[in-house]
Amino acid sequence: MIDFYQQMSPSIKASIVVTIVLMVVLAVLGKKVEKLDPEKPIKGPLFLVVFLVDTLNGLIEQFHGNQWRRFSPILIAILLFLIAANTASLFGLETPLANINVAVAFSIIAFLVIQISGLIVRKPWQRLKDLMEPSPLLLPVNIISEISTPFAMGLRLFGNLLSGSVIATIVFNLLNNVGALFATTIIVHPIFNIGFGVIQAFVYFMLLTIFLAMAVDASGVSDS
């Protein structure tokens, strides 16, 4: 078991560390939120948590209508993991998404989430009919687009994070010790980890929300 862990690439180790830290933090926060008194106003950092979850739920509700409760847990979990993973190099970890295995794992997650919820919500026969829009001749093209969109989403994350970590490595190797520390802390990390990383996490979240809404409700508009 220990050997297995030590032979893994640093990106995958970092993704495991991020997962464990997120699990512990979210479990503690969830216990604290559970104990809250709904009558009293919320104070402190817990207010931030509740506010964030509420905002994201509102965002998901815009796309999923009255079904938002079914999808918001996995969407918010993916968003939280991506934000934590993309900013993980601030804490001395390797960026998990700079490894293509992690990125393709995200593609697979997106593919499975979209297809399984489409099958459950729309029922298989209706889902097949949705894929045959606007004409049955386009069924192969639609199936290819169902597979290629999640793959493109994963590759987008991979390319962005890989370019960030490569540029950080180049800057770090070009300059001498003090200059490298200065440049990476002031220029490279804020732009490529906090800026682009969080934006890409949000873009992935939005795209997954939109494609999920399209697969679940083919008419696109969900009233109420």
Partner: peptide
């Protein structure tokens, strides 16, 4: 705008992956 720009960046990122 930020979401749209991140989408527009995709083609450049694919080129970057191919270059790597």
């Amino acid at each position: 705008m930020l979401v749209g720009q991140a989408m527009a960046e995709t083609t450049g990122l694919y080129a970057l992956i191919i270059a790597f």
